[in-house]
Amino acid sequence: MADEKNHANETRDEHGVRIPTVIAEDVHIVYRVHGGTASKGSATAALSRILKRGESPGVRRVHAVRGVSFTAYRGEAIGLIGTNGSGKSTLLRAIAGLLPTESGRVYTDGQPSLLGVNAALMSDLTGERNVILGGLAMGMSREEIRERYQDIVDFSGINEKGDFITLPMRTYSSGMAARLRFSIAAAKNHDVLMIDEALATGDRRFQIRSEARIRELRKEAGTVFLVSHSAKSIRDTCNRVLWLEKGELLMDGPTDEVLKAYEKEAGK
């Protein structure tokens, strides 16, 4: 019964086989942090290091993701949990193609879309203009944007306390900006949608709307990844959880099973 519940929303092909959307194979991601001595020396010496593929003694290597492997399937909503600095957001950025892997491979079916609360917005433009630009950036036509525009604004709740959608984004609180960003991204069906902490913003009413929309995206054959520190959001939204610590995948399984192990380890 548990397995049936976990796979209830997954899309299968004509042979009844689950359809993979993301495959990570032994993924390692390394950041290189340049210290104060990294810029010293002549331009010739710097060029020599580049040609030799060497690194300055002032460069510190941070191994953020260590040998992570998993396969995600259509119709899944997958939560990523772990303490701060465990590699969750880094892994999503690699899946989105924004970070190169040091070794290992990431394969995706379709175009992954990363939605993060720190994603850039054009603060001098109005919310209205950002809705249009955001929709175009996701590949929506102008006609599609016009058709969905009011739904996006209503979903975000931006105008509940005034006509904020016509004001520059710099006048918004961080929560308002995050809600509008989520609303824009959720207006389109995605092959792979990755959400980094967006549900932590806003009141409970908006969180409920967001969780319901994620369930709809799952039914429409997409795959959703959700990074959140809220166990309730993970439980209400996801059927599977990846638990990362210090860049390593400690556990991958059904939501309740993984969350119970994580909460036991954290003493909650």
Rank of each mutant, 00 (worst) to 15 (best):
R49H: 07
I184P: 11
A231Q: 14
A94P: 01
R179M: 07
R218K: 15
E265H: 11
K219F: 06
T44N: 02
D163R: 02
M169S: 12
I184Q: 03
L125H: 10
R18T: 08
A72M: 11
L199C: 01
E216Q: 15
H190A: 02
G139I: 00
S39T: 12
E257W: 04
A186N: 09
E211F: 01
S69V: 13
A2S: 12
L98G: 02
G58I: 01
K268Y: 07
F155R: 02
H34C: 11
L244G: 07
T255P: 09
A198K: 02
Q150E: 12
E55G: 00
S86K: 03
G36K: 11
E147D: 13
H63Q: 09
G116V: 04
I214R: 06
S42E: 02
G253R: 07
A24C: 14
H7C: 10
N84D: 05
I19Q: 08
L51I: 03
P112A: 14
C238E: 13
F155I: 01
A137E: 02
R129D: 14
N9Y: 09
P112W: 01
G139S: 09
S156W: 13
A212G: 06
T171V: 11
K246S: 03
V192S: 10
G116L: 04
E128S: 10
G134Q: 11
T11L: 14
N9R: 11
